[in-house]
Structures are given as C-alpha cells and as structure tokens.
Design a protein around this nucleic acid. Sequence first.
RNA 1: GCCGGGGUAGCCUAGCUGGUUGGGGCGACAGACUCAUAAUCUGUAGGUCGCGGGUUCGAAUCCCGCCCCCGGCACCA
Length: 648
Amino acid sequence: MKLVTCGLPYANGMLHVGHLRTYIPADVYVRYLRMMGEEVVFICGSDCHGTPIVVNAEKEGMKPEEFIEKYHEHFIRVFNALDVKFDYFGKTTEEHHHERTKEIVKRLIENGYVYKKEIELAYCEKCERFLPDRYVEGICPYCKSPARGDECDQGCGRHLEPGEILEPKCKICGNNAVFRKQTHYFFKLTAFEEFLRDYLSKLSGTENALNYAREWIGNLKDWCITRNLEWGVRFPLDESLVLYVWVDAPIGYISFTEKATKDWKKIWLEGKAEIIHFIGLDIAYHHCIFWPAMLKGSGYSLPSAVVASGMVKIEGKTFSKSRGYVVWVEDEYLKAGFNPDYLRYYIVNYTSHDKDLNFSWDVLKDKVNNEIIATLGNFLFRILSFAWKNFGKLEMEVEDRVLERIKETKEKIVNAINKWEFKSASDAIMELASFGNVYFQNSKAWELLKSDKKKAMKVVANCLQIAKALMILSYPVMPKSMEKVAMAIGLKLSNCSLQDALKVDKEIEIKKPELPFKKIEDEDIEPLKKILVERFSGKINSEIALEDFKKLDLRVGKIMSAERIKNSKKLLKLIVDVGDEKRQIVAGLAENYSPEELIGKLVVVLVNLKSAKLMGVESRGMILAVDVAGKPILLTPEKEVKAGERIK
RNA sequence: GCCGGGGUAGCCUAGCUGGUUGGGGCGACAGACUCAUAAUCUGUAGGUCGCGGGUUCGAAUCCCGCCCCCGGCACCA
C-alpha cells in the first residue's frame, strides 16, 4: 500500500500555475501506480491556520472561517476541473484534525520533547496583541537599516532574535510596539540530530530535497511551536496559545488519511505502507527535518520519500505575485476554455520534475499543436477514421514487432514513473505515437486498400493496437481526452491496467471517431499574453464581460450628512441616501472637501461593496471619485436626478 | 560569504563510472505523400560541448583555476 500526499495549499489565495507543479505530477503518479496494480491512497487539503489568514480576513472584513471557506471551495473546484482526484481533500479546521494534532502534541510533551521558555515579543498596545516577527518593522541593531522583526532584509541580512530589533513598529497599524515577556513553548528539534542524520541517509525522493536537508542537519535549532493567536489549534498546556501552523499543517496528512481510509492505522502507526510526500522545494525543510522529527517523537510512521518539484517561471521570469509574474489557473487558464489535459501534459512534459519549469503561452501553444495534436492526436484520429471508414470491424492480428515496441514503451514508462521522471514517461508516449505514424506512413495502407484489402487490414490492426496502447498509456496524463477517444473502440479506460496495452482482442468494432483535441490558435493566447504584459507594467486593462459590469450596483446617492472622523486626516463619515435606504459610508474626501460643502451633493455610489471598518467606523459602500495627484475629485450627475437612480 | 544545481547548435535538452563521426525535440530550409486537425513521412543546414590550464594514446565526460546564471542559508504559512 502507498500513501501519496501533496503539500497543503494555504487558504489565503487562488491557485496559480506554480501550485500545479506539485499537484498534477502527483495525480499522474497516483494514476500510473493504480494502473500498475498498486493500492494507493491519495490525500490533500487546505491549510487554514496562521497569522496571514487572520490578518487578511480582517482586511476584507470577514471572519477567518468565511475567508478560508472561499479558498477551500476554490481549491476543490480547480482540482476537479483539472482531474486531480484526491480520495479526500480536507481542511485543517476540521474537528478531528484538531483532535489528532492535540494528541500528537501531547505525546511529544509526554516524551519530553517540549519545554517552556520566557521570551520577549513585540506587543502592539493599540491592536492589543503580540506581533508575530513578520509583522514587526524597525531598525537593525547591527547596520541601522530598516529591518523586519526576524531578519535584516534590506541591510546586512542578519537573522534577528526576538527582542533585538530597535524601534519596533506594528506593521498592521503603524504604531510603536513595545516588548513584553511571555512564556512560550519549544520543540526540542536538536534532540533529533542523530536520528535525522540516519533517517536522511535512507530517505528516498528527489535529490534537490535531500541535498537541502543534508545541508541543514548540522545546524538544528529548537522550534518555538506556540503563537499568540485566537485562530488555530489550541495548545494543550496553555489554552490561551495556539500551535504554530507548521505543527498542525503536516498533521493534516494523518487526519485526512483517517477520513480517506479505514486502513489509516496501518499507514501511520504500523508502518505497513510507503508514505510519499509531493511538495514544492520551498517546504523541503519542514518535510525532511521538522516533520520526521515530530513523527519520531510521537511514535508515528515515517515518510519513505519526499518528492520536490522545481520552481515555476512565467514567460522566463522568476515567478512573483507582487511583480505580476503569475498565471491564475481558474480565472485565466480555465476561463479561456483550454482543455485541462493540455496543462497536465505541459507540466509533466516540459522538463524533469526537479528542474525549473518555464510556463509560457507560446510554448503551450507549440507543445499542444506540435506534440499532443500533430503527433499523438493525429495518429489516433487518422487510424480510427481510416479503420472506421474502410472496415468498421477489424480482425485483430498483431505482429510481434509491434507488440514488442509497445512493451518497450510500457517498461520505459514504468521505470520512469518509479523514479518520478514524468518527462521521460510522457516522452515515451510521444515516441510510440511517432513510431505509429512512421509505420502507417510506410505501409501506404491507402494504396493497399485498392490492391490488397487483406493486407491493408493487417496494417490497420497493427496500428489499432498501437492506438489502443497509446490511449491506455497516456490515460494518467490526459484522462479526459483519452476517455473521449477510447469510446471509438468501446474501451473503458478506468478499468484498464497498463498491461492491457499488450492485450490483443479478437476483433475490434469502430464507431465514428471524434476529433480528440482542439488546436490552440494565436487568438486564443493573445489576450492572455496581454494580461501578463499589462500586469507586469502595472495596468489593469484586461477586458471584462458585460455580466461582470452588471455585478456592480452603482447608483446616484445624495449626501445627507458629513462629519470628520477623529484622528483621521482623510476620512469623513457620511450618511448617504441611496434610494431605498440611508447608508453610513466612510470616504477619504476630507483633504479636498469640507463636511459642510458636501451636504446635499449628488455622488456616484458603489452600493454592493462588501462592508469594511475604517478607523473603527463601519462603512457600507464606496463613493467614487477621480484621483488627481492623490487628491479626490467627486463625480456628480450633470443634471439634477433623484437619489437612488441606477447608473448603467 | 557558505552550500546545492546548472552553463552542450536560434530555443529546450540527452550524454557526464573517459574511447568509434556529441544524440533527440522545436524552429529553419528542401523534397515526398494524401488516410489524417496544411496533419504525416524523408532529407539538409546549424555546435570552439562557459573560459584557461593539466592528466591521458584519447575528455563534453577526470583534476586544478577562473567567469556567469539559478536556488538555499530556516521558524516566512
């Protein structure tokens, strides 16, 4: 039995192409294993705890529960659309996950791997909370440049211990923070050095992950595993603290397995299964060092392999959300209507799993049109239509050399998959398709048809066997498309094993084949390329549909009252008549308008904007204005109209 | 700085326990064919294998020095 997991996506943002570098190969791997006769459990889930989620939820005026739900549902939607099929896709907010986490932490405590220590933490008196290091800004005590709480990121690059930073400020509200002593709890990672050294020498997986882990091992530090937060798994020894996300997130692998299979104990307690983690290289440390130590310390089974994917680049540029080098899976790829199998093939075939992958729309088009369609799709379609038009039903007599060629391909794939070399596996498929094309071309079956129909049928039978093998062998990479093509020969791929590629039927009846793939045209990718260019240059010029515009409830509003908000230079609290009701809206108008001159003015209001709190004052809606050199200029109707009039 | 990975034709890449003329794919060019989504098939051009030195009968492949690119150097989710 094998358990395959994928790094949990953090429920703090949409999925982009970079994420898929882990999930798609893992899904392909699982599908191949199953077709090789392995029993596999495949799980994943949303990582829902941690400070950024709390902070971002607050920013959007949402509860963390609602906030993560939005992304959790998005993950499920996208994985379904891409045919990444987990046996269970959970959430770390689930009750039983909290229970499992506490149970493991209790075991660590019982076994003496957790100790307490008083440390000094930045505390914001205004926000009334302790600030995680990342939310503190100040001055580096060594080089005096501006720095983050944990690291002098702009100056000398030194790691800063809690309490070292000078002039600490809260990054959330901007006020000065103070240091307060507090007791926190640490995991004794240093106690596992010998164990880890030995473990890592046996751990299997990709070299990139293992190399990193081996480098870090001489340099272990104990981890602070508690945080000052309300959101997360309660720490059993002190209910006012919550566990650090990296404690509970990997435990999701266990708790989700519990949901996926009754055999979970065999996997996680009895060591009767291989545990294979697919991750991005950025979390290799957690999976090769921290996680095995936690498992060892609490008596659970250890992972047998860590498979780390390389980085993703976008149009040759280092991936960066803030700089705009990102491609969103749902809003861009899927919405454009591309076959999900194209992306699956691209990610699996572009380069070795542990090397950098460049995502480019032009390359996508080339690979799809030249490889998937011209080589594979074309062979399948030309054979199926030829067989259907000229024979309808075929007696299957297949030459040994053809079967031999299929067998070679199959073995190549099995070997490659066992080494996580997805590119070699998918290359082998294309080579077989190419072999098919050459064979058919040289046989000149269309001429034989006139001179020797029997011989022609033998040729077609050989090709049909190759076609069938191609469908079976490429099913894990392109499930949707292959299922569609396979209908022409009545083949149910979900029941097939790889071995079936060599099975010769007595006869095959052909139904009218459908084109398996649609080409990608320049027009299809131009808008998407443009989005990237614009995003990189900072413009928001992408076209939206009319429906998108219609989602905006824009109305004329009449300002009934206006007053300044205390301690704010810009903000005014307005009561605005929007027709059916009078609303309180906070607007940043004070620098250009006095409250008095605003009363009675007609303005443009976005009515259905999610409510938010600004300076502690609730705001339901937004007043539209032009921004000229940082100062607002109001928009107002050219003729007198009633308040509440809809803007179209 | 330290550590890891890499630098092979316009682009991507195999080879790297040394040995016949450095493979493959895309693109380019020429031809063939028509069953097929102008798809396919055949052929051609294109390389100082990052730079310099060394070992050897012989090095992309081993050793030394140098240059360049990418990533990591941890509690960041």
